[in-house]
Design a protein around this nucleic acid. Structure first.
Lengths: 337, 337
DNA sequence: CTGTTAGCGCATTCAA
DNA sequence: TTGAATGCGCTAACAG
C-alpha cells in the first residue's frame, strides 16, 4: 500500500513544537537552539522525512526547472550539450525539461508555449534551422523568464548567448588544404538562417585573401542539410569542368553525404578529393574515407557555459539588478585526423 | 517588468462571483449556468489566464512527470526511445525527466533517489549494464510509483516490461550466414548482466542445431562493450587456427570495432569475414564495409509501448484496482543491407 | 529562541 | 446553479 510520506507537521506534533520551528531546524536556521535542532533532525531522519518538492515549488513560485529547446537529440552533438547542461543544472538542484524542435519553427513555437505554461524558470535554446525571428522567445521576457541562446544563436542584439566561433578555425582549415596543395576548395554552405554570422564563409574568403588565391564563386554552393539537397550541391561541385580538389562541408553529416556521392563517382577520397568539415563526430573514425580534418565545437562546454550564464541571470533576477547582455564566445579548434 | 500572471481569484473578483464558480466554469462543470460559463471563459481568454500548473500539481499531489532512466542519450538507439516516450507523455500532458546512468549502477541508484524525491508519478527504465538486482527500483513500490522496464529488462518475475525478442531474428541471422556459405560463425557476446535472457546465444545455438552444424565453443567470446575488450575478443576469434568466416556481434558498436580490427589485419570484410549485428544504426550506411545485416529492435515503438503501459498503470492506480504484471514482447526484424 | 498566523492557487466538499 | 470554507505542505513575516 501507499506509504504515507511524513510532513513537517507530523514531526512537529511528535515533538510538541511548531511547524515553523521544524522548518527552521531543518534549514539550519541560525536562531534555533542546538538541542531542538538536533532533536528535529534526528527524528526527521528516523521518519525518512523528505521535503515535498511540489509544495516548495508552489510556495516559492518557482519550478526549479530549466527548459531546453534544441533541434534534436539524435545528433551526438546535442546529446553532449545536454550533458553539459544537466551537470550544471544538477549542481543547482534544477531539473531540465527537454523539447525537440526537429528543426521546425512551428514546433519550436509550440515548445516555447509549453515551457511557459509549465512555468520553467529559464530557457536555453539552440534555434531550429527554420527560425529567423525570435518573437516567440521575446514573449518570455514578459514573464520574466530569461533566455540564453547557445550554439545556433540568432544574430540579433539584446540577447544572452554562448557560441563557438568558427572564423579562425575555418581559416586554418582552408589553409590546411592549401598547404596540402589543394588550392581549389569547394564550400558547401548550410541554410542561410543558420548562417547569419556566416563565419564559415567569412573564414573561407579570408583564407583565400590571405593566400592570394582568387575565390571562384562557382565553388560556393548551399544545402538545407537534407541528403538530397547536399547531393545536389555536391553534384554541382563535382561535375564542374575545373573540379575542386577539396571540399569544406557545413558539418559532418554533409561531409558524409558528399563523400558517399564522390565515391559513387569513383573519386578517391584523400586523393582526388579531400573533405574537411565541422563537428568532429566520433563515428567518423570508423570510416575508410573520413574527413581529413574537422572543426571541434566543444558542445559539452557550450552547454555548461550556457547553463552557468542562465543561473547567473536567475540569481540576478532575484535581486532585481539589471544584468548586461552577455555573449560568450568560445574558440573552435581544427582537429586533423 | 514582471507581468502579473492572472489567477482565478482575479477573474472571480472582476465578475463578482466566487472562485469556485470560476474554477468550475473553466472545467466545463455541468452544474454551471451557460451564461456564467461563457462569461468566465471569455474573460479568462481576454486576460490570458493560464492555470498555474505548479499549484495544480501541489493540490493534486501529482507531478505529472515521468522519470526516464537509461544508460545514455548518445546512442541513437536511446534517443529514438525517448521520442517514443515523449510522444505518448505529451499526449497525456506529462513531462519527462531524464536521467542517464552511464551504465553505472551507483549512478542509477542515485537517479532513482532523485526521481523519488521529485515525486515523479511513474518510472521507465532501461537498466545499466552493471545492474543485476533491482532492489533500488523495488523501493519505489513503497511510494506507489509504478515502474516499467523496457529494452534492457531484468530477468525477474513480478515486473512490468516491454522488450524486443531477439531469438527468432538471431536464428534468421545465423541461418542467413549459413546460407551464404559461412558455416563457421563467431559470436561476440555482451556483458552477462545484459544477457540473462540470453536470446542471442539461444538463437545462435538453435540455428546450429537446426542446421546440424556443431557448435565450436571457441567461437563464443565476450565483451563488456568497451573498445578494448571488444578488440581483445575479436582478436581471439580472428587469430584462431580455424578462423571464423563470419561474426555475430552483440551490437553495431561491437561490430564496428570488430570490423576495424579485422581490417587492420588485412581481412576483406564481406569476403574473408562477414559481420552481422544488432541495432541497425543509420550511420552504418556510410561505411565501406558495413555489417552485412543487422537486427532492428524498434526503439521508438518500445518507448511508446512502455509509456502506454505506464499510463495504464497510473490510471489503474487511481482506481485502486490490481493490475496483473504485463510483459509486452515485440518481435525484432533482420534487415539485410 | 520559538510560536502563531497567513497565504501561495486551486479543486472540492458542504451549504445554501 | 452558486458561494463559502477548507486544506494540500511549506515558508516567512510578525509577535512574543
Amino acid at each position: 500500500m501507499e506509504k504515507k510520506v511524513p510532513t513537517i507537521k507530523e514531526i512537529a506534533k511528535k515533538l510538541n513544537i511548531s511547524v515553523s520551528t521544524v522548518s527552521r531546524a531543518l534549514h539550519d536556521h541560525p536562531s534555533i537552539g542546538l538541542r531542538t535542532k538536533m532533536q528535529v533532525q534526528k527524528l526527521a531522519a528516523e521518519m525518512h522525512y523528505e521535503p515535498n518538492q511540489t509544495a516548495i515549488r508552489f510556495k516559492q513560485g518557482k519550478t526549479f526547472t530549466l527548459g531546453l529547446i534544441l533541434p534534436n537529440l539524435r545528433e551526438e552533438y546535442f546529446s553532449s550539450v545536454i550533458s553539459g547542461i544537466e551537470d550544471i543544472a544538477f549542481k543547482n538542484n534544477y531539473n531540465v525539461l527537454i523539447g525537440q524542435s526537429h528543426d521546425s519553427l512551428s514546433r519550436e513555437q509550440k515548445i516555447v508555449e509549453t515551457m511557459r505554461k509549465h512555468r520553467v524558470d529559464g530557457v536555453l535554446v539552440s534555434i531550429s534551422k527554420e527560425t529567423t525571428g525570435i518573437d516567440h522567445f521575446k514573449q518570455l521576457d514578459k514573464y520574466n523568464i530569461p533566455v540564453v541562446y547557445f550554439d545556433r544563436v540568432p544574430d540579433v542584439p539584446g540577447i544572452h548567448s554562448v557560441w563557438c566561433s568558427l572564423y579562425n578555425s575555418t581559416i586554418e582549415a582552408v589553409e590546411f588544404l592549401f598547404s596540402n596543395g589543394r588550392r581549389s576548395v569547394g564550400f558547401i554552405q548550410g541554410p542561410l538562417s543558420l548562417n547569419i554570422k556566416n563565419e564559415r564563409l567569412g573564414g573561407y574568403l579570408e583564407a583565400h585573401r590571405k593566400n592570394n588565391i582568387a575565390v571562384n564563386e562557382a565553388l560556393i554552393v548551399t544545402t538545407d542539410l537534407s541528403k538530397a539537397a547536399t547531393e545536389e550541391s555536391a553534384e554541382k561541385l563535382l561535375s564542374l569542368m575545373e573540379r575542386p580538389s577539396a571540399i569544406l562541408a557545413f558539418n559532418d553529416q554533409v561531409a558524409l553525404d558528399t563523400i558517399q556521392l564522390a565515391k559513387k563517382k569513383n573519386l578517391k577520397i584523400g586523393k582526388d578529393l579531400c573533405v574537411v568539415s565541422y563537428a568532429n563526430w566520433p563515428i567518423t573514425s570508423y570510416l575508410d574515407s573520413p574527413p581529413l580534418a574537422s572543426v571541434e565545437q566543444f558542445p559539452y562546454e557550450q552547454g555548461s557555459r550556457a547553463a552557468e550564464l542562465l543561473f547567473k541571470l536567475l540569481d540576478a533576477g532575484t535581486s532585481a539588478e539589471a544584468i548586461p547582455f552577455e555573449n560568450i564566445v568560445l574558440e573552435s579548434k581544427l582537429v586533423v585526423h
